[in-house]
């Protein structure tokens, strides 16, 4: 197991290296105006040149890349240029990551808490009103654009309950709405997959045999079906946590939550390449960790799966 994790980690470092190199090179193709901001019109070409040279943008790309990796090894992601001038990227991301993680984990927790039982109940009562209600909910979440229903929730629910519209970290009552809105979509997807896996499992022959032998329906559900159906779920869990972190851009913008999703969009609009690089690195690392955790989680839940043999892709 340890050996397997070690191998996976090494592979991941290579992957990360390739990703970062690609992104780094792509970003150098962008117009340079972003570095100058509003001053672009007023500075003379000579002044612009001095400025760009001082940022290291006139070095050959390989030198730039080399410097970047040298600093990276020392835990230095460089300094922000146009987003917050001269502030280290590490500091900027560190400020945001707590909010993102808290909301991401909170939303996943909440959606697991509701989505999984909902999926189980839907499978249990397949075809009845609960199943239909759940399906209706899932279809609704999939179909209506998130940009629209998030806004509806913010505008109308705050009006209904006289809540403040914006997030304020010192007033926990303002946490509830963003958290629940964020949990809506993952709840639906957990419920959907849980239902599907449960139904697949219920159709299997061993269940028929168990029923024929007179095993109680409740025991059957929880001891056999649920456990088996949970295995594929376990694998995707870490990946969905990551998704909630990146997918929270709408929510962060609407409720003024100072998280990473908003940071990415902002850094891109301001063309702050050092931050974009840093964020891609963080997101990709989280993604890779998520995948490894997923595999481990699956192995833990299902004793039949042995890691390290066969290898390859999930």
């Amino acid at each position: 197991m340890l050996q397997y994790i070690g191998k996976r980690l090494l592979q991941s470092v290579l992957t990360l290296f390739i990703i970062i190199t690609i992104v780094f090179s792509l970003l150098r193709l962008m117009p340079e105006e972003g570095y100058l901001g509003a001053a672009a019109d007023k500075m003379s070409p000579a002044q612009q040149e001095i400025y760009l040279t001082s940022l290291g943008l006139r070095d050959p790309i390989l030198v730039q890349l080399g410097n970047f990796y040298k600093n990276l090894l020392q835990g230095d992601l460089g300094k922000s240029v146009t987003y917050r001038t001269d502030v280290p990227v590490v500091t900027i991301i560190a400020d945001k990551i707590t909010y993102s993680l808290l909301f991401g984990l909170g939303a996943v927790g909440l959606s697991l808490l509701i989505g999984v039982p909902l999926g189980i109940m839907m499978a249990y009562r397949k075809g009845r009103w609960l199943d239909r209600l759940g399906t209706g909910y899932i279809v609704f979440v999939v179909a209506v654009p998130a940009a629209v229903y998030y806004l509806v929730i913010q505008m109308y629910i705050t009006e209904l309950f006289q809540l403040p519209m914006l997030f304020d970290e010192y007033r926990p009552i303002t946490w509830i709405l963003p958290l629940t809105s964020m949990a809506l979509a993952p709840t639906a997807s957990y419920a959907m997959w849980m239902r599907r896996y449960m139904v697949d499992e219920l159709n299997k022959d061993y269940i028929k045999l168990a029923r024929a032998k007179g095993v109680k329906e409740r025991t059957l559900m929880f001891k056999h079906v649920l456990r088996n159906a949970f295995i594929p779920m376990a694998q995707y869990l870490p990946a969905t946590i990551l998704f909630t972190i990146t997918g929270s851009i709408y929510i962060e913008s609407l409720y003024s939550i100072p998280g990473m999703g908003g940071l990415l969009v902002d850094a891109i609009q301001r063309q702050d390449n050092t931050i974009v690089q840093g964020l891609v690195l963080v997101f990709s690392s989280l993604g890779i960790i998520g995948l490894i955790l997923g595999d481990i989680a699956m192995a833990l839940v299902d004793p039949r799966i042995k890691l390290g043999k066969g290898g390859g892709v999930r």
Binding site: Q11, V23, M30, L264, S284
Partner: peptide
């Protein structure tokens, strides 16, 4: 596959439309 799959889709979408 590892490279493409490990960058969250949102980020690839944003980066490409940005470039």
């Amino acid at each position: 596959y590892n490279v493409v799959d490990n960058i969250p889709t949102t980020i690839v979408l944003i980066l490409m439309s940005y470039i």
